[in-house]
Computed example of a mutant assay.
Amino acid sequence: MPARTDHAKLRGRSWRVLKDEFRKRCREVNARCWICDQQINYQAKFTDPASFEADHVKPVSTHPQLALIMGNLRPSHQSCNRGRGARPIDGAWTRADWS
């Protein structure tokens, strides 16, 4: 069987379980987007730009070993996460309480 690609890990059961647990924890404390510091709509469908999306602080493309580590995740809006892409973090992208 061929080795799974780094991003393929994010389509597997382990990722779904981790993402669901992380979302649950974020929703319980009403965590805000770590990128823009605005409220996240936890009831929104995944297609909504204001919906919750788990952001990998250190991108999977450069740090595949951290893909399934909860400590590498931060709550974000879908639009903020996708807008940031795999760019490295700098002060402009992080809130003080998440860095």
Rank of each mutant, 00 (worst) to 15 (best):
L73Y: 02
E21R: 13
Q38C: 10
L73I: 06
N41Y: 01
S99I: 15
Q38A: 07
S14Y: 14
R82N: 09
A31G: 06
G71W: 00
Q38R: 11
A8N: 11
C36V: 04
R23Q: 09
V17L: 13
T47H: 08
A67F: 06
K45S: 15
Y42Q: 02
T5E: 14
V60A: 01
R32I: 00
I40Y: 01
A31I: 02
A96L: 14
G85H: 06
Q65F: 03
R74T: 01
C80P: 03
S61M: 13
R23M: 09
T94K: 12
T94M: 15
S76I: 01
V57M: 10
A86H: 15
W93T: 13
D97M: 10
R82W: 09
P49A: 05
Q38V: 04
D20K: 13
Q65I: 04
R27M: 05
R82K: 11
P64T: 06
R16E: 10
R25G: 08
S14T: 11
E21S: 08
C36W: 03
N81F: 02
V29H: 11
L18G: 06
F22K: 00
P59R: 10
R84N: 07
R4I: 07
R74V: 00
S99D: 15
D90K: 09
S14R: 15
V57S: 09
S76K: 03
I40L: 01
N41T: 03
W93L: 14
F52S: 00
P49V: 03
A67E: 05
E21W: 10
V17I: 15
D20T: 11
W98N: 10
P64A: 04
K9I: 04
I35N: 00
H7W: 14
G71E: 05
S14V: 08
I69A: 07
R16N: 11
L68T: 07
I89Y: 11
A8I: 09
A54F: 00
G12Y: 09
K19S: 14
A96M: 13
R32T: 02
P2G: 09
R25P: 05
F22P: 01
M1D: 13
C80R: 02
V29T: 14
P75R: 02
S79C: 05
